[in-house]
Structures are given as structure tokens and as C-alpha cells.
Design a protein around this nucleic acid. Sequence first.
DNA 1: AATTGATGCAACCGCATTACT
DNA 2: TAGTAATGCGGTTGCATCAAT
Length: 282
Amino acid sequence: MVRAPCCEKMGLKKGPWTPEEDQVLVSHIQKNGHGNWRALPKQAGLLRCGKSCRLRWTNYLRPDIKRGNFSKEEEDTIIKLHETLGNRWSAIAARLPGRTDNEIKNVWHTHLKKRLKNHQATSQDIKKQSTQVQRSDPRTPVKIDDQPDESNFTDDHHHQDGKVTTSLGCAPVSPQHSSSELSTVTENDSAAIKQEKMDSPEYFPQIDESFWSEEFPVDNANVQSGIHDGLATNDMQFQFPLSPVAASDEDVNAYISNFDDGMDFWYDLFIRAGELPDLPEF
DNA sequence: AATTGATGCAACCGCATTACT
DNA sequence: TAGTAATGCGGTTGCATCAAT
């Protein structure tokens, strides 16, 4: 295959997008869609390559993108899915509505990998200490306060009601409950079958554009201005198809607050999409 | 206040895959 | 069926920001 000339050689712009470029791209896609990314920048009057436009849209400007920090539930889900799927970020992203593969990849490398490492190190320390106690001379008295070194715990570990918990949501670490529990999915014989099932389109239905254009039950839903934390300017009056994300923060929060928790919110989205997913059994 | 190192994240690069002719 | 174009995807980079010194 003949590689397309790079953007610079074509006199195209690279680097961070300006709000003006964002506005041009968004308004063009709203009017014309994005059938052909390669032709899009020329049609829209952008000095960008199609690839750059696609990336900007899919990772940042898309109205159905959920911005902001990852919830603990989302992080736990990523960790579990990563055990099953590995570095298949797009597959993981497909199971986290509103999150992009790029975002998930970043979160994994910046937060979750570190957290897992700390968690495993802590578990190994405890296991080691436990083994040492078991193997030590039975005549050696065991200290009653023989607890893991507090300094081994990072910010990811918290004390609650006298128990030690981690941000991973795992049970308190003990010699009997080591970090190996985190990898049970890959060790399970059914993992491959489960993965195949999860990869099928039936498992998590695709939400098409028409879904977002449905009226959403939020106050003031008929007028959506600005973009959710993305373009950071209220001067722009983008008229996205109605979606929970394109709505203002207040509207979204008001809508989400109707649910007991965030998962119910996303579950409702699937219901609205017309198909009820078979939720993963973790 | 200035410097330095760490961190987070948007964007890019290049290979793989899919679609089209 | 082969060649080409378009798109998808994962790895990597570069820069802005923040915290520590």
C-alpha cells in the first residue's frame, strides 16, 4: 500500500487544535456528517489531514463523550476488562460508554497500572511476611502486632472501620486473599468463551446517531448550548443532537441524580438504545 | 522566585485491517 | 484476485501543568 504523504509535506497543520478549528469541524460534521474523513478537511476548509480530523472528533468533539474523571466503578471495570482483553483499548472502550480508547489507554498507563503494581507489591509483601511467620522456628514467639508495614501502603489504600481497603475495591488484603485473585479471569477456562461472547455485537449494542437525536428527558432539553467541557467556550452555540452529554452539566447532573448510581444511568442508555445488554459476570 | 522533575493528556506515527475497484 | 484507498488501532511522543526543592 502506498502511504499518504505526511501532513507537513502537504502543508497541513499539526499539533493542538484551536477552538476555531474545533468549531469548524463540529459544524461541518453536524451539517454533512463524516462519510469520508479524507475529503472532510478540504470540504470543511480545514488545514488538517483527515486522520487528524477523525482523531479530534472521536477523541474529543464527539457529543457522546463523557468527560471528567473516571469513577471508581469505571476504573475497576477497566482493570477487569484488561485482564480479559489485554491492551485492546478499543474493545475496552466499547464496554465503557462515553469513554474513548485513547482516554482509557491514558488512564491505564498513568493511574491503573501503577495502582495494580502497588497493590500486587503490597500483597506480595504480606504473603512473604506470612510465609516467614509460618516457616520460622516454632519456638520463636510471634509478635501479636505483627502487621504489614504501614509505609507499604500508598494513597490507594484506606482504612475503614478498622479494615484496610484499596481503591481497587478489592477485599482487604490477607495471605489468604492475595492479589492473585485479580487474575482469576485469565486463569479461568471460560475466559476465552466469555471474551468471544463479549466481542460479539449482541453483547453491547452499538448506539447509532439516531439514538442521540431522540428527545432526552431533561429540563431545558430543547436548547443545548455549548459543549460539555470540551470546547470550553459558551460563546459557541453548537446545536448537537440532543444527548445527555451535549446537555449542560446541570442538566446532565439532574438527569443522573434520578438514578441510584452511575451504572443505572448507563443501563438506562442501553435500554433506550432498544437492546438490553447481557451484563458481564465479573 | 526560580529551577527541576514528575505527571497527565492530547495528538501523532505507523502498521494492520477492511473496503472498494 | 490483486492493487489501492480509507479507516482503525495501539504505541509513543511532546507539551503544559503542577509539586517539590
